[in-house]
């Protein structure tokens, strides 16, 4: 009996986080406190590992502590050595993502509204979406040379498919009933797209955009590892082969920070745009 009761409590806790309106302060900040705490513990443990664990000289070469990473990152920021490579990387990211949006959204809407195009494009979309974009890198380097445009191409291929597929899914998901409603008031295809299809697909498109940003950052990093001579990724590879582990981590933090910042911005826009949604309905 005792066993089932604890089970009950656990199950209740699963959904309970958003249930009770009268929660104490601690109950409300508890999740955030645990989250922050675990971060702190992780950083502290990492920082003090060298004091407790004797590291072999070979391993020490690969080891760094958070304070050293922070110092290196700060150094890179103030000395300006971060900005030039970051600018190179950001350019490739921005151009590639922009082209992906310009191509992906209209194509997604088109494929979503036409079953013929859908059937014909489907094998290609499936294949390119399943395949790691990285396998095209050697080919793209051959075609576009080492530099900006092969990176842009990788970013583009990576970001295109999440956008395309989510737009398409959103359009296909268009509520039949709502389409009939506006048609019953005499709406033409353009009005249907404007009044129902696009607003309905918007949450899907935003999710696609978030995914696309993640993949675009990944694309920049990876293509700079192999097919470039400048950019933050290049700095990181060089640092790795020179055993400057702090620089690798600093670069990782910058990329992660950018990734989180961008997706956070998208989330903000999404929240503003979707005020009409009930709180507990989340985009797929």
């Amino acid at each position: 009996m005792a066993e089932t009761q604890t089970l009950d409590a656990r199950v209740a806790a699963l959904g309970g986080a958003d249930a009770a309106p009268h929660r104490s302060l601690w109950r409300r900040i508890e999740p955030a406190a645990w989250g922050a705490g675990s971060f702190l513990v992780l950083l502290l443990v990492w920082q003090f590992v060298p004091y407790f664990v004797p590291l072999k000289p070979g391993t020490r070469l690969f080891f760094t502590v958070p304070s050293r990473v922070a110092a290196t990152l700060w150094q890179m920021i103030v000395s300006g050595s971060l900005w030039a490579p970051l600018g190179v990387s950001a350019t490739a990211f921005a151009i590639g993502l922009a082209i992906a949006i310009v191509v992906g959204l209209p194509l997604g809407i088109l494929i979503g509204r036409s079953s013929l195009l859908n059937a014909m494009f489907d094998p290609f979309i499936t294949a390119f979406n399943a395949t790691p974009r990285l396998v095209f890198l050697p080919l793209l380097m051959l075609w576009l040379g080492i530099g900006l445009w092969s990176k842009v191409a990788i970013v583009f291929i990576g970001a295109l498919f999440p956008l395309l597929i989510n737009t398409y899914e959103g359009v296909r998901n268009g509520d039949k009933l709502l389409i009939n409603v506006v048609r019953s008031f005499g709406a033409k295809e353009w009005d249907i797209a404007r009044l129902v299809v696009v607003p309905n697909a918007l949450p899907f498109i935003v999710v696609g955009l978030r995914l696309a940003i993640g993949r675009a950052v990944l694309g920049v990093v990876v293509s700079e590892f192999f097919g470039s001579q400048e950019g933050l990724g290049v700095v990181m590879v060089r640092a790795a082969s020179g055993f400057q582990v702090d620089v690798v981590f600093a670069g990782l933090i910058v990329f992660a920070g950018l990734s989180l910042l961008m997706t956070g911005l998208v989330k903000l826009v999404e929240d503003r745009m979707t005020r009409w949604r009930p709180e507990h309905v989340n985009a797929p």
Binding site: L177, N180, V181, S184, F185, G186, V196, R277
Partner: peptide
């Protein structure tokens, strides 16, 4: 469809 007729739908059909 024409504006001389209008439908009230079972599932409301309001644009959310």
């Amino acid at each position: 469809p024409g504006s001389d007729r209008a439908m009230v739908f079972q599932e409301f059909g309001l644009l959310p």
